[in-house]
Structure formats: structure tokens, C-alpha cells
């Protein structure tokens, strides 16, 4: 079996977001870019599966859609342990375009298990995995919190409202993974960083797809008013404020 992990390149969570002068885009100067946290957990799980299933997983590939600027993130994924990488060379306009470009890539290079993080911490869209599965005409399972391969069969747990379900899926399929899929993201070792330089990273031209939506502008949220500190000796006052002023209880 072959696993593909779709990787998104996102600003580090601690990054302060600034807008361009015309508010049409985000000012990317000074942003520290990282692998989207959920994608990092997906990659970690893919590598664990490869190591623990006695040869059932022959290869773990990572792929991203973006310009040359996102390559350090792919190299980091190789350093963590992916075997090879693809970059589709286009600056995508929305999640649909990302999914459509990945579809072109996967049709030319089929995989049995495709892993996507449930959300990217930039546009918070939760959309690429499902769109990709639909465009490929394969099954998708969302909110996947555990994934194992037993005797060539994929077993899953998904988190549903108020509980969880154990499932199986036909192959190939897309798992949209969340917290729980692996405990801690793997950190590249020095040896990993050295060998990553020699691993194949193929740049593929765009498949000529189009987007369905565009971002017409950004706004920064209104600054929050200062916290109203209530005296710890007078907790009743807090409840009164929540009732009379905030009107939330």
C-alpha cells in the first residue's frame, strides 16, 4: 500500500497577522511558516504505520500545492521521514483549486490511503480532503481519530457528535484526520535533515484548474475591551455582572 499525506504550509500559530495596505491580502513579511499542525500529525501516523505493519506500507509520499516558497515545508516533511515529495507549481486561490490540482497529481500517481488534516490553521476551511475524495470518486471519512492497517484492511475510528464509531472503508479512500490520530508530531532528527536533501522532490506543473471562490478582502477583528477584574472576595458580583451586564445567564 502507498500512503499520500497532503501538506499545507501555514503561518506558525504565534504569528501576528498583518494586512497589506489595501487589505486585499495578508502581509507575509516576517511570517514563520510551518507544516499545518493536523497534517504533521497525519504524517506522523503514516510513518508509524509504515514502521509497524511489516512492509504492508511500501511508501509514504507528501504533496503540496504552492509556489517554490513552500518547499522548505516539504523538505521538513521529508526530514521527518516521508520517502518522497511532490509540489504542484501554482499559487492556489481556494480549497477547491488545491483539491483539483491534487486530483490531477493523484490520477497520475495513485495511492491507496490519502491523509488530509481536518483543517488548515490559515483559512480554517476543513474542505480539501472531502473535495479531493469527491473529485477522485472515492470514499472519505472525516474526523478520523485513529487509523490502523490490519491484514491489508484499514480500520478507523471517527469522532461523532457525542461519541465515536469504528469503521472500515473501501480502498482507495481519503481520511480527514484530527486530534488523536497520533499523540505528538515527530520532530526531524539530524540524520533526517541530512538525508532529506537527497530525497526526491518532484515539481509538477499545474493541471490548469480553476477556483470557485476568491477572497475579496480581509478585516482585522475589533480590539477587545479590557478585562473587567472582579474582586476574588466578591464572587457574587461576577454572577450579577454576567446576568445584568453581559446578559448571558
Amino acid at each position: 500500500m502507498k500512503i499520500l499525506v497532503c501538506i499545507s504550509n501555514v503561518p506558525d500559530t504565534t504569528t501576528k497577522i498583518k494586512l497589506s495596505a489595501d487589505s486585499k491580502s495578508v502581509d507575509t513579511s516576517g511570517i514563520q511558516w510551518v507544516i499545518n499542525p493536523w497534517d504533521e500529525l497525519a504524517l506522523t501516523r503514516a510513518l508509524e504505520l509504515k514502521e509497524t505493519t511489516g512492509g504492508a506500507i511500501e511508501k509514504v509520499t507528501v504533496a503540496t500545492v504552492g509556489t517554490a516558497e513552500v518547499e522548505p515545508t516539504l523538505r521538513k516533511a521529508l526530514a521527518i521521514g516521508a520517502d518522497d515529495a511532490f509540489r504542484v507549481d501554482i499559487n492556489p486561490q481556494d480549497a477547491y483549486q488545491v483539491a483539483a490540482e491534487l486530483t490531477g497529481l493523484i490520477k497520475a500517481n495513485p495511492y491507496d490511503i490519502i491523509l488530509c488534516g481536518i483543517e488548515s490553521s490559515d483559512y480554517n476551511g476543513s474542505a480539501v480532503g472531502g473535495m479531493l475524495a469527491e473529485l477522485l470518486g472515492i470514499a472519505s471519512v472525516s474526523s478520523v481519530s485513529s487509523l490502523s492497517v490490519v491484514n491489508g484492511e484499514v480500520q478507523l475510528t471517527r469522532e461523532i457528535d457525542g461519541g465515536k464509531e469504528t469503521m472500515v472503508s473501501s480502498l482507495p479512500f481519503t481520511a480527514i484526520v484530527q486530534k488523536g490520530i497520533s499523540l505528538e508530531p515527530r520532530i526531524p532528527s539530524m540524520r533526517g535533515i541530512m538525508t532529506a536533501r537527497a530525497k526526491p522532490l518532484q515539481v509538477v506543473p499545474s493541471f490548469g484548474t480553476e477556483s470557485l471562490t476568491l477572497i475579496s478582502g480581509f478585516k482585522l477583528p475589533a480590539p477587545k475591551a479590557a478585562c473587567h477584574i472582579v474582586d476574588g472576595e466578591n464572587v457574587k458580583d461576577l454572577i450579577r455582572l454576567l446576568h445584568e451586564e453581559a446578559k448571558v445567564i
Partner: peptide, 8 residues
């Protein structure tokens, strides 16, 4: 961006 900006 986890609530740090609103996009239209």
C-alpha cells in the same frame, strides 16, 4: 488564521 483575521 484562527480568528486573527476575517476574510471576505
Amino acid at each position: 488564521f484562527n480568528g486573527k483575521a476575517l476574510a471576505e
